[in-house]
Deep mutational scan, measured.
Amino acid sequence: CHSECLGNCSQPDDPTKCVACRNFYLDGRCVETCPPPYYHFQDWRCVNFSFCQDLHHKCKNSRRQGCHQYVIHNNKCIPECPSGYTMNSSNLLCTPCLGPCPKVCHLLEGEKTIDSVTSAQELRGCTVINGSLIINIRGGNNLAAELEANLGLIEEISGYLKIRRSYALVSLSFFRKLRLIRGETLEIGNYSFYALDNQNLRQLWDWSKHNLTITQGKLFFHYNPKLCLSEIHKMEEVSGTKGRQERNDIALKTNGDQASCENELLKFSYIRTSFDKILLRWEPYWPPDFRDLLGFMLFYKEAPYQNVTEFDGQDACGSNSWTVVDIDPPLRSNDPKSQNHPGWLMRGLKPWTQYAIFVKTLVTFSDERRTYGAKSDIIYVQTDATNPSVPLDPISVSNSSSQIILKWKPPSDPNGNITHYLVFWERQAEDSELFELDYCLKGLKLPSRTWSPPFESEDSQKHNQSEYEDSAGECCSCPKTDSQILKELEESSFRKTFEDYLHNVVFVPRKT
């Protein structure tokens, strides 16, 4: 048989008469490798580009789960590009990614509803959504962080984005990388972005840091009482949809009607710091009717980097990364020049730590249904340095008659930039024990000054392991946590139920 035959053949030295091919099969003959313009397919066939392209389009058009959109890589027609490569849609070739590779997620039936953290986790790592997304989240724990972890990498949506009755959302900033909504599939009414009845939605994105392009379709905003109209108009300008909307697409009466839409800028007039305090004062603000001013709200939190936005980490279910302080308005003076500047002394802060701070007014709604208010920009203030805590785990070892090696770990709280350490030492008198000992005694162990690591005695271990207080009263049991108490109650309830079950099964009433 021919060298490319495997198993047997019907005619000697003829690659077209093989029972099976050793390498690849091409047009009725066995070959060692697939010549151009053919590609290896499933490690035994040679196919042309049209064959591989037909497989790709067949799966793409069917949208069946589990099928493969075949691509070409290293002269092979394979189910998908290997790690580190992405497909070129024009020629199906796998090309190296520039940075992290995109991950295209194809949605069944063309859309997916995100109504819980669990459903959001199914899209973790996706960068391109081939379909439409509907966000409908009523509640949950730590929602802002969970949504950002699972949806934060999405850069492109081919269909539309719909935010509907998501009472738990305060902001859409968890879509931190969303840059493009194509609108290839539109919501009824030709809408590519749809926001309806979101009672706590206050911000779409921080438009000073976020760009969003909507290729096709219109915007729809109705019944978002805490979303200011200025935020919607800003989205029109940034996304390129200005002029597409009709009169009733953006409701003037049901958007922002319960919001404090600040239209003035508060400026800080005085800032002073110490290692654990920050004193702030800002310019006074009074609405047209000074009785509408209820006070100020001061927001602050630790910020290692200057990239904080107002609604980071917030949701309507209680999660809030900001510390909020309510401040009463100052006494009002008739003389504008003698107006008191409101302020606040922030206490209990960490030394040498940068804080993000902003302040906003708290006002009631005027009778004319106009909203007044003022808010400052987010500023960054760093507390002063102070003395560091003591170095940890000092170790001293003498390696000769004239040297001592000293080692330690950095302090747990540096409280500033540590530039150097101060080492103090003092000579001590020799131990009298060394002169009084009889060095001729056998088995004498000389006193040693070398360091030995501390260890816990058996008594201390027994005390720590004991669940009861000892007789001397030195140790006591740790208080039980809520989960331990709940577990004990469940076990007790189970024992009672099981005992009742045994009584009912074992003891049967005697027939009379």
Rank of each mutant, 00 (worst) to 15 (best):
F365A: 04
R332T: 12
L169N: 01
P391N: 02
W344G: 15
T213V: 14
L266K: 00
R138V: 12
P394W: 15
N141L: 10
H341P: 11
E246D: 12
L293C: 08
Y305V: 14
G295Y: 02
D393A: 15
N190E: 06
K350H: 14
T309W: 10
D377K: 12
I232V: 03
N248R: 14
W322N: 02
K407H: 03
S274F: 12
N399P: 13
D315I: 05
N211E: 10
N200L: 09
T118N: 15
R291Q: 15
L266M: 08
F299M: 12
F268T: 01
C228L: 04
R179P: 00
D289Y: 06
P391S: 02
G139A: 04
A303P: 02
D257I: 05
Y380M: 04
K301Y: 03
Y191P: 08
I163T: 03
D335A: 12
P388M: 04
N307F: 09
E155S: 10
E122I: 03
R138K: 09
V104S: 12
N248P: 09
L196Q: 15
L107F: 08
R182H: 10
S269L: 12
Q354W: 12
P351L: 02
R244L: 13
I114S: 01
L265C: 06
E302H: 13
A385H: 10
W352E: 10
V117Y: 02
D384N: 05
T127I: 05
N255G: 04
C105N: 01
L107M: 07
R176W: 03
F299W: 14
L331K: 11
W352M: 13
K103Q: 13
L123V: 12
N224W: 01
N248H: 02
G313Y: 05
L196F: 02
G131K: 01
Q314P: 02
A120W: 03
G189Q: 02
E155G: 10
L151Q: 00
M346L: 10
V128R: 15
D206M: 06
N307G: 03
G131M: 01
A145N: 12
N211R: 10
T213M: 08
C105L: 01
V104G: 04
P342V: 12
G256Q: 04
S400A: 14
M235E: 00
P411N: 01
Y300P: 00
K103S: 11
I357P: 00
D197R: 15
A145I: 05
N387M: 11
P288Q: 09
E156G: 04
V170P: 06
W282Q: 00
T215W: 01
A385L: 01
S376G: 01
I135Q: 00
L123D: 00
F221C: 15
V170A: 12
F358M: 05
R179N: 06
L280R: 00
Q258N: 03
R281K: 12
L180I: 15
V359P: 00
I188G: 10
T241C: 14
C317E: 15
A259L: 13
D315W: 03
L178S: 00
L229F: 15
N150A: 08
M297A: 03
I214H: 02
N399L: 09
F358K: 09
T127P: 04
D289T: 03
F275R: 15
Q258A: 10
R332M: 11
E302A: 14
A259N: 02
L227T: 08
W207V: 07
F268M: 05
H106C: 04
F311V: 09
R281T: 09
E231F: 14
S119H: 13
P284C: 03
M235A: 09
V170C: 06
T118K: 11
V363T: 08
H233S: 12
F174E: 01
V324K: 01
P330N: 09
A195C: 15
I157L: 05
R247A: 11
P388E: 07
P304D: 10
P342E: 06
S116P: 01
D292Q: 14
L212H: 01
S119A: 03
N334K: 14
E122V: 12
S274G: 04
R247L: 09
N200W: 02
E236M: 06
N190C: 07
N198E: 00
F358Y: 09
I405H: 06
H233F: 05
I379C: 13
R164L: 15
T383E: 00
W286E: 05
S166D: 03
S239D: 02
T213C: 12
F268G: 00
G313C: 04
Q121P: 05
R244H: 13
G217M: 01
Q203A: 11
L265V: 13
T113D: 02
Y167C: 14
C126M: 01
V128Q: 01
K209F: 11
S208V: 07
D292M: 08
C261S: 03
L252Q: 11
L345Y: 15
L123R: 01
G217L: 01
D206N: 09
G131C: 01
E146Q: 08
G217P: 01
S319T: 06
F268C: 02
W282Y: 00
N399G: 08
